[in-house]
Simulated scan of single mutants.
Amino acid sequence: MKKCHIAYLACTAALLGTGLGAAPPVAEHTTHPVHVVHPGESIQKAVDAAQPGDTVLLTFGTYHQSVDISTPGLTLRGMGRGTVLEPAAGTGTGATTPSTGSGAAKTPKTPKTAKAPKAQNSCAAAGNGICVVGTKDHNVDGVTLASLTVTGFTKNGVYATNADGLTVRKVTAVKNGVWGIATEHSVHGVYRDNTARDNGDAGLFLANSVKEEMGATDTYGTVVEHNRLQGNRIGVTVRRLRNLTVARNHLTDNCAAVFVVGDENKPKAGFVTVRENRIEHNNKSCPKTARLDALQGSGIVLTGAEDSLVTENVITDNVGKSPLSGGIVLFKSFVGTTSDRNRISDNQLRDNSPADLVNTDTGKGNTFEGNSCRSSKPAGLC
């Protein structure tokens, strides 16, 4: 037996010596390159040179430019909040007033003075900071944006359309004219650990489309979680979407915290879960727009939505005199569509006005159960 063991060891040693029994070395081509960009250098040039799976790393500092991304699997990453994208001179500067509280805003005209390269110009001229753009026939897949700040853009800090599996994490979107972080026609998204503050409309805006009339679309499990949303018109807007979760976010000092918005098209917005969020003091006052009444003191609003769950949220001190004010509000949409079969359960509500729970909807099958609250309209919902 001892001879056999010695022979086995000798054979193994021989294999290792020839390299046949050892793990093969990692070839250089199996590691995706990192393209490092410094302030003053072109982000777009690095993005255009990158292949699927590569990372474009932005070092600490301020970049006066915008960038278009259409390469699948690309990661655009900064080094924290100190990596800052701001508009270049003559592109995307100034402020716009959103034309609707649920998202539609006019796209600024292309500045005649902009002389950026064509690839970069489409995003910058539209007033956006970072654009992730696919097409109706071919989504851009698996893009990640992380650890940077986008601020001061006329329209949106981050804008994505026709994106599949987009991840946005640890992005700070501050003082952009319309939306901090916005998506259309996108699925399987993850929006985590971001800060959206003092943007003109929603801090986070997710929609099927802002230009087309169409029914709500399935996001296939998009997740919005662990974000801080402060000082915006609306913290999170979910417009005409289905199968989406908004969880464990902190929303404060907005005019309204969470909006789930449907309309007359079929299917309705629905199957949205809003859970375990901390929603407090969303008492900023915002004026009426073409599509939405004045806003103040709204915690969670469902309007024209169906089969959604609002649960285990802590909602306090949201006070206002808008028709949409209150802790959790079910509201018949402005185009007359009811909210149906929504379940409002196990939430903790306190000191919201005109009431902790408000139901002015005429929809069927909505239930209120297990909520800890003191006041409701109509009475008896607590």
Rank of each mutant, 00 (worst) to 15 (best):
T83P: 01
T83Q: 02
V84H: 06
L85D: 03
L85K: 02
P87E: 03
G92Y: 01
G92E: 03
T93I: 03
G94V: 00
G94M: 03
T96H: 08
T97A: 13
T97F: 10
P98T: 02
P98Y: 00
T100S: 14
T100F: 03
S102F: 13
G103I: 04
A105Y: 01
P108A: 03
P108G: 04
K109S: 09
T110K: 10
K112P: 08
A114T: 07
P117G: 01
P117A: 13
K118T: 14
K118M: 00
K118Y: 12
A119I: 08
Q120C: 03
C123E: 09
A125D: 12
A125R: 00
A125N: 14
A125Y: 10
I130M: 12
C131F: 02
V132F: 03
V132S: 04
V133T: 15
G134A: 11
G134Q: 13
T135D: 11
T135P: 12
T135A: 09
N139H: 14
L145P: 10
L145F: 13
A146W: 11
V150C: 08
V150W: 08
V150G: 06
G152H: 05
F153L: 07
K155T: 14
K155G: 00
K155C: 02
N156S: 14
G157V: 08
Y159S: 11
A160G: 15
A160S: 15
N162A: 13
A163Y: 08
D164P: 04
L166I: 10
T167V: 15
R169I: 08
K170E: 15
A173L: 03
A173H: 07
K175F: 07
G177K: 03
V178G: 03
G180M: 10
G180V: 02
G180S: 06
S186T: 11
S186V: 04
V187H: 09
H188M: 02
V190L: 15
Y191P: 03
R192Y: 13
D193C: 03
A196F: 07
A196T: 07
A196K: 02
A196D: 05
N199R: 04
N199T: 11
G200A: 11
